Simulated scan of single mutants.
Amino acid sequence: MHTPNIRAMLGGAFLLMSVLIPISSAQSLSISSEHPNLQSMSVETQGSGTDVILIPGLASSRAIWADLASDLQLSHRVHILELAGFANTPAMSNRDGKVIAPVVDAIAEYIRTQHLKAPAIVGHSLGGEIALMLGARHPDLVGRLMIVDALPFYTLMLDPAATSETASRHAGATRDWMLAQSPEEFIAFQKTSIARLAKTEAVRPALVAAGLSSDRKTIADAVYELMVTDLRPELGRIRAPIEVVYAYDALFGVPASNVDEMYRRAYIAAPDIHFTRIDDSFHFIMLDQPERFSSAVESFLNK
């Protein structure tokens, strides 16, 4: 388990934290017990206009979208999610080990109960996986999808020939390793991981703090689910147009063309897809290149 490849993969893809920046002028949605699926997430709304749903990544606060939401609320009604067990939203006590799939059902239920009409969905990393699954399993509910620095099968970064079955052993070992870390080891791992996720050094301490405020079992279960979930066979069911925005930096140590090829090959089954690469950025594109990212989102929404 303690191989450099596993640690690098986790540090570069799975511990997707966010900054603790307060969102102002937000209204919290009161989750009713009449809709138990909705208890797997919390929602805050801002602004008015056409609907946009923002989904953060693993162990991320909704505050990752603070700057973007501030701009979007001038012409959109923005729904900013936070998953149960991540950042400031309490973990669910009766989970069956699944994190991603229940949130997909919760978002679908939210769209229906709030009478949203073909909302645009923007998901970062694990949130991108959620957005893809939502588009594939509830194609009539979404208008368009933006997938931010996310793949339909994360284990491809470790093994391009991986399958859900071959990934399960590594996924189980990874989950067990995360749960077995001492508090000191977990803190050190967060710091090392965040250095690979955010190029902007000033935001790193807050990113670490966000991860440490999350429920570790929820994080570990979500990592397992990410590693064994292969959505490539489901991409053909998505009817909404897809925009994939991904990061590249020379510090990745591979040519940009390799990263381009990895994304295009992973999404080859998607019928309506466009790719936008944002350079000089690590995983948290919205923090490392906020202006370019905001421009990409505006272009996506206005197509």
Rank of each mutant, 00 (worst) to 15 (best):
F14M: 14
I278G: 00
I147N: 09
I285M: 07
I31W: 01
E243F: 08
I194M: 14
R237V: 03
I107H: 02
L58G: 10
E291H: 15
L251Q: 14
F293T: 05
I194K: 08
I121L: 10
R264V: 01
A69N: 09
F14C: 15
T89V: 14
S40V: 13
S28G: 08
V223F: 02
A63I: 03
R175P: 03
A270D: 05
S281C: 04
D249K: 00
V148D: 05
P205M: 10
A202V: 14
R265H: 07
T174Q: 08
F186V: 11
L68I: 11
I194S: 06
N258C: 02
L231C: 09
H115S: 06
R144L: 10
R175Y: 10
T155K: 05
F153R: 10
F284V: 13
H35E: 03
G123D: 12
A69R: 11
W65C: 00
D230W: 04
M9V: 01
I21K: 12
D176L: 02
I6G: 00
V19A: 12
I273D: 06
A66P: 00
A209E: 11
D140K: 12
A198L: 12
L212K: 09
T45Y: 04
S40A: 13
A136N: 09
V228K: 01
G253T: 03
H138I: 13
L16G: 13
L29V: 13
H138P: 12
E184W: 00
I238C: 11
K217I: 09
L212N: 10
G135N: 09
L81Q: 02
L83V: 12
S60C: 11
A270G: 06
L145Q: 11
L134K: 14
A108D: 07
Y110C: 10
V43N: 05
L287T: 05
L179Y: 03
G11L: 02
G236F: 14
R112L: 10
H35N: 07
A220T: 05
V203R: 04
F300Q: 12
M286G: 03
V104L: 04
L72F: 03
P36D: 02
L226W: 02
A270H: 02
A59V: 07
Q46L: 15
D260I: 00
T276Y: 01
V148G: 05
I64W: 00
Q190K: 11
A198C: 14
R175S: 08
A63W: 06
E129V: 15
L116F: 15
L287V: 00
I273V: 14
L197K: 05
P233A: 12
A120T: 08
D176R: 10
S193K: 09
A198K: 02
T166G: 06
L126Q: 06
R264P: 00
F189N: 12
L10A: 07
V203N: 09
G127I: 10
L54F: 04
I219Y: 09
V254W: 00
W177S: 15
S257F: 00
S42T: 08
V254G: 01
R265Q: 12
L235S: 08
G127E: 09
S193Y: 03
Y154Q: 13
T45G: 02
A59W: 04
D176I: 05
I107T: 08
